[in-house]
Every structure is written in structure tokens, then in C-alpha cells.
């Protein structure tokens, strides 16, 4: 092997045509060449086919098929050329250590600690000022870079704060009319027992924090209450209706899956299961808290209304939540 160590510096040793290292890997190079040629020609046909498929606006399948044939043909041809026809060696390359000599190392270190370090030691004040200045600059640049991104979350529980900046509030108020996402007002007779409907406070149709799932559990008079097991609030039901926030307390997915027979709400995302008859208390899964219950009332015209707002923040947990 030592014969070849000169190769990068001096004249390069050539190899003869019949050197075994330069022979193709296959015993029948002419056959393999023909095969590679055929593959590349098929590939060419494929690409021409793709142009045709594009031109006549053929289906995605035709486009993909022609393109795939083209790529396969070229790929198989080129790989066969490289694998079977090109000199296979084996060839070897020397490996050298990465690290520098001890002299080089100490010179490098001295340039940093000696030359630079001496200057830094001598002007300690400037270095300190530079560090502080750089820190202040970073802060100054970061403030608009971060603070402009969005509003600060509202800290406390302001019942009339905007839902855009507060995780604590919703747009449900005493007397809010229940409407569908299309804005249709929900009347007391709209749902049969076992019926389910996604509702919003009027004026906020489609709003994420306000989504509520309305379920009719019994055929009752408007002033009657359906008895819920704790922690459900019986007083907050009306005419056999119960309403819960549709935001899962796990990760905020809409809890849209109502199993009528077993009286459960299931979150389709991570399969938290809530007991509808017991204030939507979680029975299984990762959700930690019941879905907040919305107080309901029926007015004199039979219109379904909210009889107050949620008694807690809706949706998943967060640090500021008490």
C-alpha cells in the first residue's frame, strides 16, 4: 500500500487497462450494457409519455405512471451502469487524524487566551460595558420581535372581557339566546329526547370558546329541572335540556360525540369520556375536569336562553387557572 502514498503529491501512477481493479463487476458487460441501455430508453419513453399525459390533461394516475416509468428507467439504467460496469476496485483511501500538532494547538490557544485575553484583561471596563450593551441590544430587538406577536393574556376573571384576549371569559351572558351555527334560534320544542345540537350565544355564531353542546335528556315542562347527579347542577337544566361547553378540558377539541344510549360525551381526539347525567364528569381518558355546565332557561315564548354564564374557564387547563 505504501507504493501509493505519493499519489497526491508527485506524478500519479496510472493503472493499466487490464488491471483487475478496473474490471466491471459483471462477467458479461456487453449484456449489462444492453440492459442499462434498454432501461434508459424505457425511461425516455416514460418521460415523453409524461409530456403527453400533461399535454392532454390525462388523469393524475397517468401522469404518475409515466413519470414513475421514466424515473425507474433512468434510475435502473444509471445504477446498473455504476454497479455492474464501472471499475469495482476495491479502492482504499487513507485516513488521517483530525487533531493538529501540539505546537499548532498551543499557538491557537495562545492567540485566544494570550493575545486576545491580555487585551481583554487590560480593558475590563470596556469588556463589561460591551457585554451589557450587547445584552440590552438583544433585549431591545427581542421586545418588538416577541411582544408584537399577540396580545397579553388577560390575568383576572373579568366577566365582560373580550374572549380574544382572555381564557377566562366567554360571550355567554344572562339571557343570551341559544342559536345554531347558522343563526337559527333554538326553541324549546326543537329537540326530541335524545337529540343533540351545537349552539352559540346569539351574535357569536361559530366562535370557538362559546361553543356549547345542547342535549335533551327528557320531555319536561319548561319550568321543570332534570335531576343530574353531582357535580351536575340540576337547577341549571330546563325542560329536560342540559348544556355543556363543547371544548374538551383535555386539549380543547370539540366534544361532538354523543353516545345517546350510554349517556356519554366522547372526545374524538383522545377518547376522554364524560358522563352526561353527572355534570359531564370524566369517566375515562386524559381529560382532568368535567365540561363546564351552562345554566339554561326557557323564556315565555319558548326560546332557549342562557341563565347566566359558565362558573369557570372553559377548555383545557393553563397556569393562571385557579
Amino acid at each position: 500500500m505504501s507504493d501509493h502514498n505519493i499519489r497526491l503529491d508527485g506524478p500519479l501512477p496510472p493503472a493499466a487497462l487490464d488491471d483487475p481493479h478496473l474490471q466491471p463487476a459483471t462477467g458479461h458487460p456487453e449484456r449489462m450494457e444492453a440492459l442499462a441501455a434498454v432501461a434508459i430508453v424505457i425511461g425516455m419513453i416514460g418521460f415523453v409519455g409524461f409530456i403527453w399525459a400533461y399535454w392532454v390533461d390525462a388523469s393524475t394516475q397517468w401522469q404518475a405512471a409515466t413519470l414513475t416509468v421514466g424515473m425507474l428507467g433512468l434510475g435502473i439504467g444509471t445504477i446498473s451502469w455504476g454497479k455492474y460496469l464501472m471499475p469495482q476496485g476495491p479502492f482504499v483511501e487513507e485516513r488521517h487524524d483530525f487533531h493538529s500538532t501540539d505546537d499548532e494547538r498551543s499557538a491557537f490557544n495562545a492567540a485566544i487566551t494570550g493575545r486576545g485575553g491580555l487585551e481583554v484583561k487590560r480593558r475590563g471596563l470596556l469588556l463589561g460595558l460591551f457585554a451589557v450593551g450587547g445584552g440590552i441590544m438583544t433585549l431591545a430587538l427581542l421586545i418588538p420581535g416577541v411582544r408584537s406577536l399577540g396580545p397579553k393574556p388577560a390575568k383576572s376573571e373579568d366577566p365582560h372581557g373580550s374572549t380574544d384576549v382572555s381564557l377566562f371569559t366567554t360571550n355567554w351572558r344572562q339571557g343570551s339566546k341559544l342559536v345554531t351555527v347558522g343563526g337559527r334560534q333554538v326553541m324549546v320544542d326543537d329537540l326530541d329526547v335524545g337529540g343533540v345540537l351545537t349552539v352559540f350565544p346569539q351574535g357569536y355564531e361559530g366562535s370557538s370558546p362559546d361553543q356549547v353542546i345542547l342535549i335533551r335528556l327528557a320531555q319536561q315542562a319548561p319550568n321543570e329541572h332534570y335531576t343530574l347527579e353531582p357535580p351536575g347542577n340540576t337547577e341549571w337544566t330546563a325542560a329536560g335540556y342540559v348544556a355543556y361547553s363543547k371544548l374538551c378540558t383535555h386539549l380543547g377539541c370539540p366534544v361532538g360525540l354523543y353516545q345517546e344510549k350510554t349517556q356519554q360525551l366522547v372526545c374524538p381526539c383522545h377518547q376522554s369520556i364524560f358522563n352526561v347525567n353527572a355534570g359531564a364528569i370524566p369517566q375515562f381518558g386524559p381529560a382532568p375536569r368535567p365540561l363546564p355546565q351552562l345554566p339554561l332557561a326557557v323564556d315565555a315564548t319558548g326560546q332557549m336562553r342562557a341563565n347566566g354564564t359558565f362558573d369557570q374557564a372553559v377548555g383545557p387547563g393553563f397556569w393562571e387557572r385557579p
Binding site: 500500500m1 500519479l12 501512477p13 496510472p14 493499466a16 487497462l17 487490464d18 488491471d19 476495491p90 479502492f91
Partner: peptide, 21 residues
């Protein structure tokens, strides 16, 4: 074959170099 460094290809005029390499 024993591995050799990659030669600068190929001298077609000196077939007898096969042994020299």
C-alpha cells in the same frame, strides 16, 4: 483483490504496468 488507491485512469499505452501498480 487487495484494495488499491484510486488510480488516475487508465494508461492504455502501457499494459505492462499492471504488475508495477
Amino acid at each position: 483483490l487487495e484494495a488499491i488507491p484510486v488510480p488516475t485512469y487508465i494508461d492504455t499505452t502501457h499494459p505492462d504496468l499492471a504488475t508495477a501498480a
